[in-house]
Design a protein around this nucleic acid. Structure first.
Lengths: 173, 173
DNA sequence: TTGACTTGGTTGCATCCGCAACTATAAACC
DNA sequence: GGTTTATAGTTGCGGATGCAACCAAGTCAA
């Protein structure tokens, strides 16, 4: 029950309290993690989205696929799915669009004729470098909102949620 | 740089390291907050989404609007936008769908003839109560993944990101 | 009052997404 | 081998979304 000092809704432009009837269940929307995570994701992604949308017409998924390829190097669509937890159809379409835009190229896998190895083209790497450096600045701003240790903590907690790992995995406190 | 023990990609079903070329910029996708937040939001929301989708055919936005009305009581669409940070067109359509389904009713505002006060019907409250109690259980599971204090910390940090508040607002540590 | 501007809310349209179905290849089992 | 099952990736289609344009009502000021 930390931080109940600012009544939350007061921070926004209501001037009457939302009456807060909460009829029965002990459900508390204000601390419901999926809800908060969605809001935070939307809030933080929206700002950076305008950058890659306005500059390159990328969709969010396209940017993410590009970023994965830029960060980790050539790999198959399946690998991107596994690493990024993006649905395979989204990846498929993003790859098609990025290829269309000359950002990446496909080469058939030598070990699996179903799979194709995806790698950024020179243009793709250039674009990734530019967006990457912009992303660094954007991320720094977000972290300043939290403070450096808090930001690290957040990263750890998010990873744990993403991986679905149990709480008893070493680091606690 | 906490928690580099498990190489991240190894947790997923790759067996070759993604080569990790990261050409130039210091951009680190693995700690990029918008990216992690999106993954976490997607991962945590997806599970519960099946609950309200299968039971009531709700979309995520519809569930969220219902939850806000259930939690805070009657208010206008504008208030929902302000509190939840959902785009107003999304809210508009969700409200229409919920009304269509008999979950809420609109009454013209007495102070502003443009606005309509939205309130859950009896059916809406019933549905909210059921989904709310399911949500409680779902949230508890997520929190067990993190541990109670960590979960509280996460809530605090997410709120700060959502509100865009500066780091110097009282509580630190 | 009039007029300029803001704001609550909806709608058109293009796009994106989710899910299921599908093709083609690989693996597993006999 | 041959048969069954699993996997990499694409596509069709209905539905959800984002953005801009819009309408109607409120606000502010002369």
């Amino acid at each position: 029950m930390a931080q109940a000092a600012v009544p939350y809704w007061r921070a926004h432009n209501r001037d009457t309290p939302p009456t807060m009837t909460d009829p029965t269940s002990g459900f508390d929307l204000e601390t419901f993690l999926p809800y908060l995570l969605n809001q935070a994701a939307e809030a933080t992604s929206h700002g950076f989205q305008t950058v890659y949308r306005d500059r390159y017409g990328f969709t969010r998924t396209q940017w993410r696929v590009l970023a994965n390829l830029g960060k980790f190097g050539a790999m198959t669509a399946r690998d991107i799915c596994a690493i990024s937890h993006i649905e395979k159809t989204k990846v498929s379409r993003a790859v098609a669009a990025l290829e269309q835009g000359g950002m990446l190229s496909r080469t058939p896998s030598e070990t699996d004729r179903r799979a194709e190895v995806l790698s950024l083209t020179g243009k793709g790497r250039t674009v990734f470098a530019e967006l990457g450096s912009l992303a660094v600045g954007f991320d720094r701003q977000l972290r300043e909102t939290l403070g450096p240790e808090k930001a690290e903590t957040l990263v750890t907690l998010l990873r744990r949620l993403i991986g679905g790992a149990p709480a008893t995995d070493g680091l606690d406190d």
